[in-house]
Each structure stands twice: as structure tokens, then as C-alpha cells.
Amino acid sequence: MTSRVTLVSPAMSVSLRQARFDDGGPLDESGAARARAARGTLRAARRVLVSPTVRCRGTASALGLDATEAAELAALDVGRWRGRTLDEVAAAEPGAVAEWLADPGAAPHGGESVRALCARTGRWLESVQESQGGILAVVEPEFVRAVVVVALGTAPETFWRLDVPPLTATALTGRAGRWNLRLGQPLDAEGT
């Protein structure tokens, strides 16, 4: 049986515009408007899930999705850096930021390492690989990055080299643990 998983990144928010670690802020008006305009562009799925972040829930709502919140789809836990901008953290803790960006096993913020996120997403991907009818999930960009790393079997060091634009779909299809990917489709594109 071929499995299908579609991951949708959240629409734009003030936090994303400011390169701020998630602070629980909502979508900005332009992001919400883009998501509302994309209603009906996603292929139907048997299960519709959403990360517990405010902007993922807001995106799912604006897209008109009746999604179930799934704790296992949580964003990367950045510990004490939550709510701060990358520039603020880099100014206050330059060594910690350098270590975090260079070593996927590092978690100087006291939260979750990239390697731990990849392991968590790998477990989730394995648990859904035999799902019938497809899965659609609205998740944070770092969750999408981690799924791509796992699906392709690449080293976690490639995590920061993957860009996930707002309000795009990444589709995975596969069987027996082998995944094919279609990355970064805008939601207004054919066939999402």
C-alpha cells in the first residue's frame, strides 16, 4: 500500500517576519488572508492533524480544515530562547547559537536538539507509513525540515540547509519505509 502524507507550513506571522522563536503569536493579517484564499486547494485526506502552535492552528482554521491537534507534531522546543529573536539570542549568547547551528546534538537553550527532533519526527513518520486515505498536517517549518532529513536518510547536519516557505505543501508518498518527496508547493498550485 502506498502512503501519502502532506505537510503544510503555517502562513506568515509577525514572529516569522521578525525571525523570532515562536512566541505564541497569531498569524498576521496578510498571512491569514493568504490562507483563506487557499481554501479548497489541498487534496482531501482521511486524517487532518495540526501542531499545537497558535500559528499552525490559525493556519488550519483559515484554510477551513477541521484538524485534530497532535502533540507529537509539536515544534522544536527552543527552551529559554522561546519568544526571543535570533539576533537577540546571538548577541547575548553567540557561542551557544554557533554551537546550536553547527552541532545537531546541541541544545544550549535547554530545550530539544535538532537530532532529538529528527528522531521524534522519524518515529511519527514510521507510525503513519501504513495510513490509508492519506494524512494532511499543518506543522511548523522545523518539523517539515526534520521529516525531509529522515525521509531522505540524510545527516541531521543538513537540517539548517532546508528552507520551508510559509504556506507551502511538502508531499511524501511511499511504501515500506521508502519515501518520495515533492517539496515547497504553493497552496494555489495544481495537485497539492
Rank of each mutant, 00 (worst) to 15 (best):
M1L: 05
S3T: 14
T6N: 01
L7I: 10
V8D: 08
S9C: 01
A11R: 04
V14A: 11
Q18R: 11
R20L: 07
D23F: 00
G24V: 04
P26C: 03
L27W: 05
A33G: 11
R34N: 10
T41A: 09
L42A: 06
A44P: 13
A45C: 11
A45D: 03
R47C: 10
S51K: 05
T53Y: 01
R55D: 05
C56T: 15
R57E: 15
G58F: 03
T59A: 06
T59D: 06
S61R: 13
D66P: 02
A67R: 07
A67N: 07
T68P: 00
T68D: 13
A70Y: 00
A71R: 11
E72M: 07
E72T: 12
L73T: 08
A74L: 02
A75Q: 15
L76Q: 11
T85C: 00
T85K: 01
T85R: 00
L86W: 05
D87Y: 00
E88N: 00
E88Q: 12
A90R: 12
V97T: 09
V97W: 07
A98Q: 13
W100A: 15
P108S: 00
H109R: 07
G110Q: 08
E112T: 11
E112A: 09
R115W: 01
A116E: 15
R120K: 07
G122L: 07
R123K: 12
R123P: 01
L125Y: 04
L125G: 13
E126L: 12
E126V: 13
S127F: 07
Q129Y: 06
Q129V: 02
Q129L: 02
E130V: 10
S131A: 15
Q132H: 04
G133D: 12
G133T: 08
G133W: 04
G133H: 05
I135A: 05
A137T: 10
P141L: 05
E142Q: 14
E142G: 12
F143W: 13
V144T: 10
V147Y: 04
V149K: 09
V149N: 10
A155Y: 02
P156G: 09
L162Q: 12
L162H: 04
D163A: 14
D163L: 05
P165L: 06
T168K: 00
A169W: 10
A169E: 08
L172W: 08
T173D: 08
R175C: 12
R178P: 03
N180C: 11
L183N: 02
G184F: 02
G184Y: 00
G184L: 02
Q185E: 14
P186D: 10
D188E: 13
A189I: 03
E190A: 15
G191A: 13
